[in-house]
Write a protein that binds this DNA or RNA. Structure first.
Lengths: 189, 189
DNA sequence: GTCTATATCAGGATAGAC
DNA sequence: GTCTATCCTGATATAGAC
């Protein structure tokens, strides 16, 4: 792997684990096996490198989600697959965790990929819920946009509960509860 | 206010805004208007002070929640009040945000108050859902523990979505979606 | 109890040699 | 492109005077 490549991948790892504030250029260099000068040759500084890393993580997350959400199956099934897909629960969401980083939120440039990714996911989920309503899987009275926000929030909040308790159980419980609510109201299962 | 008191309150503010990793002793001292020596006289160091601050925030959050959840009204009404209570959405949850702090998660002592608070909230909500089931407000098939996790996760995740977009709208949408699901399945409204 | 001095290491970056 | 030297500030304390 090229040096810039290793720097980006290392930054992605460290941002996931320690956040933006908790990630130093020195730590990135050591993790990437690159020298000081090397890093500043390829990137203008920490924000520049972080931006590249965040963008790539955002793209990857989008691709993964799209893979699950565009699979064959009913709307309800796809949402279930999305919610139950394998996750590294205790590590948290590499995109969602950035919203707790003051420096990321303070920078429009760094926040943009985070915002866009979560926003895209919300719209994608809303479209699927809408589709489910048309197919009679969900009650017509449901507000697809609101349900999409609930689904995404349950996932993001599930990470919080899991990390607090040091166990993925709370994440799973939250998902289970949501799915029971989603399928209980179904006119037809 | 006494100096230790000002130090604790300042630490609470800064932890909420910048997290543990992003909060330095110097910043705390300046915010509190206290000198270096003063801080180290009253506390052994940053972790000690942070522990005091986190414990107090946890207690406060618990008291606030208990105030809402033990108010008169049906189970469903109390959950609604809890979800819709006024919040500083864009600031996020002062307890939940700590779960994204690597140093907090790495320390059993610092994580304990966070874990206990969220756990207590989950049990408290579960008891109310259970109560609602007995009163016929919720379907008997619901798993109270799971629903409680879903409720709490929706709130915690709502903060994430709101901060990402820079607007409380997503938080409100998530809550709205959850409430529509919770009340849709009710045998009796 | 509070202040000032001092210490050490890390954060974040620039400059110039190779 | 990469390395080393150097810079300045901040993070996190300890020591001892007042």
């Amino acid at each position: 792997m090229s040096t810039p490549e290793r720097l980006i991948e290392s930054t992605r790892e460290l941002l996931w684990e320690r956040g933006y504030v908790g990630t130093s250029p020195k730590a990135i260099q050591q993790h990437a096996g690159a020298g000081q000068g090397s890093m500043y040759h390829h990137f203008t500084g920490k924000p520049d490198l972080a931006l590249a890393a965040i963008r790539r993580t955002a793209e990857e997350m989008r691709a993964t989600a799209e893979g699950v959400l565009s699979a064959p199956g009913s709307a309800c099934e796809r949402i279930q697959t999305y919610l139950r897909r394998e996750r590294d629960v205790l590590r948290g969401c590499p995109i969602g965790r950035l919203t707790m980083d003051p420096d990321v939120i303070a920078s429009d440039e760094l926040r943009a990929p985070v915002d866009e990714t979560l926003d895209w996911l919300r719209e994608r989920l809303a479209a699927i819920v809408e589709e489910g309503k048309k197919q009679g899987e969900f009650a017509p009275s449901l507000d697809a946009e609101a349900i999409a926000a609930t689904i995404l929030a349950t996932v993001q909040g599930g990470y919080v509960l899991a990390r607090a308790s040091g166990s993925p159980a709370a994440f799973d419980a939250g998902v289970r509860g949501l799915l029971s609510l989603l399928t209980a109201g179904s006119p037809a299962t």
